[in-house]
Amino acid sequence: MAEHGIRLGRVQETLLIPLYGRAVENRKEQPALRDTRAAEIVASIDYDFARFDNLPSLTGAVLRTSLFDRWVTDFLTTRPTGTVVEIGTGLNTRYERVDHAQARWFDLDLPDVIDLRRTFFADTPRRTMIAASVTDETWADGVTAQAGGPCFFVAEAVLPFLRETDVRHVVGLLADRFPGSLLALDTAGAAFIDAQDRHDAMSKVEARMQWTCDDPAELAEWRPGTQILASHTLSSLPPRMYDELPAAYQEMLSGLAAQRLPQAEAYRLNLLQLP
């Protein structure tokens, strides 16, 4: 029985889409990822999740999360005592899926989201929630005071909802305060941004993305020395990840690649090395 009501801002409400995607995925016999915690959270929230049933975007959200999980895992494999910062953490459970038992974690999001998150999670000696906007530089003080080793920033389904001036500010803040860090983020080109009113999931909520990025390579021009380590569409995932997906996913992605749909090609998952 649902126990917790939802009071979130328009953009913040979108966190429920990937949460539900992971819960639905968890029911499958051969999932792209397992997330029992997401299933438990969905079951306890009073919200009309049925509006997102049978949407292809749920699968896309799960694949995006899975790729970001892999990048964080690779980071922690080589830097087990490093720091992971989830920007716009929502109700993500990446810590539960990939934590290596030594890393320092920070979960950053707006106050209404953190209030909701505290219903399901608690701070620990290695894991801290921070209630702040990513554009507010004060949150970085708390991270720099406690962080150990290099940092990996994960901004999943967050930055496209900001204005470009704010995204530039955030990237500059990370580069200045945490030089040499890694940043995983998604970008949306004009073909994706312009189709939001017809998008299967975005059409079900009021929030709209604002930042248009047709070529992630332009991010390297914002800060000299920035490197684009990887950039993938959902139809061009890394071979190692593709080979490990269930056969049904491989078939679906092969079909998507053959179609080369403008909207699908305009949405990319990127890994940056900051200068």
Results as ranks from 00 to 15, higher is better:
residue 143 V to G: 01
residue 159 L to C: 06
residue 148 G to S: 15
residue 142 G to F: 00
residue 186 D to I: 12
residue 207 A to V: 06
residue 199 H to D: 09
residue 181 S to H: 00
residue 190 A to L: 12
residue 169 H to P: 06
residue 198 R to F: 14
residue 158 V to E: 03
residue 154 V to W: 05
residue 194 D to H: 12
residue 200 D to E: 08
residue 170 V to Y: 01
residue 200 D to V: 02
residue 169 H to L: 15
residue 168 R to M: 15
residue 166 D to C: 07
residue 177 R to Q: 01
residue 171 V to A: 13
residue 164 E to L: 14
residue 175 A to C: 06
residue 166 D to S: 12
residue 188 A to R: 13
residue 169 H to F: 15
residue 152 F to Q: 06
residue 187 T to V: 13
residue 206 E to N: 15
residue 148 G to W: 13
residue 141 D to W: 01
residue 162 L to W: 08
residue 165 T to R: 15
residue 158 V to G: 11
residue 195 A to H: 06
residue 185 L to K: 08
residue 160 P to Y: 03
residue 210 Q to M: 11
residue 207 A to S: 04
residue 166 D to E: 14
residue 168 R to I: 09
residue 157 A to M: 15
residue 194 D to M: 14
residue 198 R to P: 10
residue 185 L to M: 11
residue 145 A to L: 09
residue 147 A to I: 03
residue 155 A to S: 12
residue 153 F to H: 03
residue 156 E to T: 09
residue 207 A to K: 02
residue 182 L to P: 05
residue 199 H to G: 07
residue 185 L to T: 05
residue 171 V to S: 03
residue 199 H to L: 05
residue 206 E to W: 13
residue 184 A to K: 05
residue 180 G to V: 09
residue 156 E to W: 03
residue 174 L to C: 00
residue 162 L to K: 09
residue 188 A to L: 11
residue 181 S to D: 01
residue 159 L to K: 10
residue 170 V to R: 03
residue 191 A to G: 07
residue 170 V to S: 02
residue 191 A to C: 06
residue 183 L to G: 00
residue 168 R to K: 15
residue 205 V to A: 06
residue 177 R to G: 00
residue 144 T to Q: 10
residue 152 F to I: 07
residue 174 L to A: 00
residue 165 T to P: 12
residue 146 Q to Y: 07
residue 205 V to Y: 08
residue 188 A to M: 15
residue 159 L to P: 02
residue 171 V to T: 04
residue 183 L to S: 03
residue 171 V to Y: 01
residue 154 V to H: 05
